[in-house]
Design a binder for these strands. Structure first.
Lengths: 145, 145
DNA sequence: TATTGTTATACTCTATAACTATA
DNA sequence: TATAGTTATAGAGTATAACAATA
């Protein structure tokens, strides 16, 4: 509940937007796993949390159109990171599950990713890092809203 | 200075990455000014802060390759939002400045942008919003580091 | 010889529209 | 008739490589 008639809140919103866009570009560029796009990565993360999902659910969760998710899931399947099975109740749908290989890869790339973010974040003092940690779940909430 | 051997910090880093990527996708999609890409927007913001810059400086600040910035600056110039002048000391370089029209447009689209973000952020309570406000400058620092 | 910016080209990601199969 | 997913196609944005002009 920001008060956008208040200048500081408007400034914060601006700052947020600009920072998120730039950071996302750097994250995308500093891609830890060369063969995986940010969205593919995000899909694997979602599957790790939710366990299983249909392509349609994934598209909605990642805020991507269904045809894009079709492609992403196909790429992940080709890399052996997910498997597709028929839906038990509705033969139109499919069920996407992550493979053990995906889990191993997530562990591996988490290590690399943390190394990169750590080097970036080393320029922050403890206060700033604490603020980021507080805000992370809120940003996630925002991304899901 | 996160301690990445500490599980919570690693989780926070992950959460941050995922949220930033998703939010950026939504911001990109909810583009307030139809005719301006997020990076064009960001360049105008940079110029608004720095006053003036060469294409090379802008490329470095936006973490984009020089040829991409050439294209972006050309698009902005075609829209009458920046002007390019010869560099006074080095004839290889150019100086990019924003026009008055750009300033007016930034004001206009800030209003629209805030309206969208406000609607998104309305689902947050005051605590969460406070956390975001604290974190915004840190995220900016991170994006610049 | 190094640097700034540009041109030409290709790639990645995503979207829209049209289609198939199932409900 | 509506919904889940796919196929075909197009567009936006960025990158790399090769080049021009200037330092």
């Amino acid at each position: 509940m920001p008060d956008l008639t208040h200048g500081d809140d408007a400034a914060a919103v601006n700052s947020l937007r600009s920072a998120v866009m730039r950071l996302s570009r750097r994250l995308k560029h500093q891609r830890v796993d060369e063969s995986l796009s940010p969205t593919e990565m995000s899909v694997l993360g979602t599957l790790a949390r939710c366990g299983t999902a249909t392509p349609g659910e994934l598209a909605r969760k990642e805020h991507v159109q269904p045809p894009s998710m079709t492609r992403i899931v196909a790429l992940l399947e080709a890399k052996g990171l997910v498997k597709l099975e028929p839906h038990p109740e509705d033969r139109r749908q499919k069920v996407v599950t992550q493979t053990e290989r995906a889990e191993a890869m997530l562990d591996e790339s988490r290590r690399k990713r943390n190394a990169w973010l750590a080097s970036l974040v080393d320029g922050l003092d403890e206060d700033d890092w604490a603020k980021l940690r507080e805000a992370a779940p809120v940003l996630e909430k925002l991304a899901h809203l």
